[in-house]
Design a protein around this nucleic acid. Structure first.
Lengths: 206, 206
DNA sequence: CATTTTCCATAACGATCGTTCCGAATATCT
DNA sequence: AGATATTCGGAACGATCGTTATGGAAAATG
């Protein structure tokens, strides 16, 4: 934190007239709900409560705003994933909890449905290819995080050493992606929970 | 078939200068690759080899063209699903084969990657809400087809009568949707096959 | 209070969006 | 041949896209 001290030296000119974090949060929610291309600058500026010139001054442009909104998502509404993987739980329990939490988070009434990363930006115009690639990279990171967690499970002995870590991690991610589509299509929390429980039946015998 | 007879009576005016089915096929591939909104009329007319006026005359407009392209997909590249469900196979074998075939179809070099239905149009501008709803309805139909197949399995005795048909069907569909995202992200055929095999471990004991 | 610096609302930009209009082309029917 | 019917290519439409330029308001410093 900085600049919370009222006596702190402020820069020379007129101070910004909006809360940067709050504006970013509004942008995140619109991108999350609509996707990158379907969220227009007009809608963004209205949602954020700022003018185009302010948006460009503070964030750089639409693509850069999306990138920051994506970070804001991963650090905010999507931040539930890593702590569950990092927690001191049996490996199987960790993924059970991951799906339970996902079922809850993907269907919250106070948020757009689904995940901003899992199943978005799979199609786009050539102009948005950069954004698509950035989101796809996030998905790849998630698979790698799953793999790391599974390897840790093997090391700690609660997962057989001969399992195909890549295949299992990719399967677990596949279910997450499918859950996100289902959530966007209006599936209920209970339905997602049932899907997650069914998926966990694929867990390898120890 | 009709109008294959060369002596058949032609309608009054100038005959169309393009093959309607072929043009629809080209449109389908572009929509399949790009999604509805990211495929522009300009690109569509170029890909189809016709002018905007011909497109409107023959298909009605962009949204109607998409609807017909979606039918064309389901009757064409996406037609592999229903025969597998209808085939006289053990229920479990049917879904094993479905995933094997999906892994093959979703990664064909001569087609856009992924499925045109499974994980597309989950986000869009308000103007395209109708298209989004139409694709979502197709997804719902697929889940229902899975449920029907599972119920048939219970009747024929190769599936326990007390299983949660809805949950299992939805899980199977969830995996299909996730596979489509993976395919679009560049996953290999072998990786998708491995995911499918892993998913089938969730199959209930008989 | 004057000056300096920054912010921001508005308007305008060129490009592209989906759609429509119009004249020329090409067929059949009388 | 002339009238009629249908299609086609291309230009043009209004709307909206993301972005930038302009100019005045606001709040700091000196």
């Amino acid at each position: 934190m900085e600049n919370v001290d009222p006596t702190a030296r402020r820069p020379r000119g007129r101070p910004p007239g909006f809360d940067r974090e709050l504006a970013l949060d509004k942008a995140m929610r619109l991108f999350w709900d609509r996707g990158y291309e379907a969220a227009s600058m007009d809608e963004l500026t209205v949602a954020m409560g700022i003018s185009p010139s302010s948006l460009y001054g503070a964030f750089g442009g639409k693509a850069q705003l999306y990138a920051q909104a994506l970070d804001h998502y991963v650090a905010g509404p999507g931040a539930y994933v890593l702590p569950i993987l990092a927690a001191d739980l049996p490996t199987r329990t960790a993924f059970e909890r991951l799906y339970e939490t996902a079922a809850f988070e993907l269907t919250r009434a106070d948020q757009p449905r689904g995940c901003m990363v899992a199943a978005t930006e799979t199609q786009c115009s050539p102009a948005a290819e950069g954004v698509r690639a950035a989101v796809a990279e996030r998905r790849l990171q998630a698979v790698r995080a799953y793999e790391d967690r599974l390897r840790r499970g093997i090391e700690s002995g609660d997962l057989a050493a001969d399992i195909d870590v890549g295949a299992l991690a990719r399967f677990l991610m596949t279910v997450q992606q499918g859950l996100s589509v289902q959530a966007r299509d209006g599936a209920s929390r209970e339905e997602l929970l049932a899907v997650g429980r069914t998926a966990m039946r694929a867990w390898p015998e120890t």
